[in-house]
Design a protein around this nucleic acid. Structure first.
Lengths: 222, 222
DNA sequence: ATAACAATGTTATTTTATTAACAATTATTT
DNA sequence: AAATAATTGTTAATAAAATAACATTGTTAT
């Protein structure tokens, strides 16, 4: 009921942008900046200043005229919205290249969001620790997830195993899933699912490159 | 000018879905299916049948009543729209875990979109061939890109090198860029840029998990 | 002191994307 | 042969997202 507190009315796109604003802000802060204008954030993110101000309006943050937004305050507010106070634990299933890449990205950067376990079926990998993340046998998924209180699962197994992995994660009580395989998976409504498909992204780029090429060709023919 | 031929009026989201439809269709075809209903595609992709039919309407494809859509025809039409006839060559800059993961994903799957070169600065990697993709020294980026006619670049270097890598790719004449680092980059207008940020995606999942958790807590307190 | 300027915050408008509604058509059942 | 059901294709309505417009307010320059 209390919108002000839960922020559950925020547009999906705004959530994504807040995460990005925060990263830009952290960078600016580390460079000694204390305030920032909407147009500066906008330039970094390739969007318009209006969009930035609108997003900030939605989360109820006010800057000061002629000085802009207080970076530290804004970071804290965004953290307040996105992060959960107690932190959330994440598991990665599939310690191949992609799984390892994600662990590298995250290791030690977010304190409220930590990858605490990896799973794989390859005996060579089981027992290893990568960047502080132990790799367990996939058989122990349920056990470890329950024991550690892991709430989010990232699926980076080969496509053909995606759906079974998802089922196991759901059975283990996971609440959010991020599927990096190209195979769409099914989960119950109470699990939040984000599918991210690398092939689609590349094909999209290819489409627009093709389109511009043909447009150019047409222009030349005229 | 000729919308029917260039399909340059298609909504961005439709393009992305077409790529996904195609993959679902290829899978069905390989299983011996010849026709498919809109609601079948919809179920696979977690969307509504109306959405599917609307997308297909936009690309001018008609199915047959009571039989659905001819899978083979539809695959060919989508290929016609998305793929470019001569094929497009892709380069990956940064042969770390993520770069290698992408190469594994793509190797031999798409014939019209092929990764033909990788670049890195690590001498241990230069000269190796991974899944058929040779790894060159980053110094030779321009040379190889021009020589091979590579049009798309994928950036999987560490964040701090992202912007310089982008500049080099643009200078080499690349037309489309896919940035997988968490640092937003700048490119001229004539280069199509897609930024994809893994951290944002995970933070988004975390936000919705948190939101559902707090909603649940509120409900329990009542 | 006043004018010009450069910001923010908010409402209004437009654009884009999704969903609903439904007519048309054909296969199947009674 | 008529009724029913299942499906497509398309238009209309709704919802979501982005952009524009603009009033407001300090700051700086004249």
């Amino acid at each position: 009921m209390e919108d002000k507190e839960t922020f559950n009315h925020l547009p999906h796109k705004t959530i994504a942008r807040l995460s990005q604003y925060r990263r830009a802000l952290l960078l600016c802060l580390s460079r000694g900046k204390s305030h920032i204008f909407s147009h500066e954030i906008a330039t970094i993110q390739h969007i318009t200043p209006v969009q930035v101000r609108r997003d900030l309006m939605l989360i109820g943050y006010s800057g000061t005229l002629r000085k802009g937004y207080n970076i530290k305050e804004l970071i804290d507010l965004i953290a307040n919205i996105i992060d959960s106070e107690e932190g959330i634990k994440v598991a990665i299933v599939g310690m191949g290249n992609l799984g390892r890449a994600l662990i590298n990205y995250f290791s030690g950067k977010r304190h409220k969001l930590s990858i605490v376990a990896g799973f794989d079926t390859n005996p060579d990998k089981i027992g290893n620790v990568m960047n502080g993340v132990p790799c367990y046998s996939a058989d122990r998924m349920r056990e470890i997830i329950e024991q550690e209180g892991i709430e989010i699962g990232i699926i980076t197994v080969p496509g053909q195993n995606a759906s079974q992995t998802a089922n196991e994660l759901v059975a283990a009580g996971i609440k959010g899933l991020l599927n990096y395989t190209p195979k769409p998976i099914d989960v119950p409504d109470y699990v939040y699912l984000e599918e991210y498909d690398m092939i689609t992204t590349l094909e999209k780029v290819a489409f627009y490159v093709k389109m511009r090429n043909t447009e150019e060709k047409i222009r030349e023919e005229e």
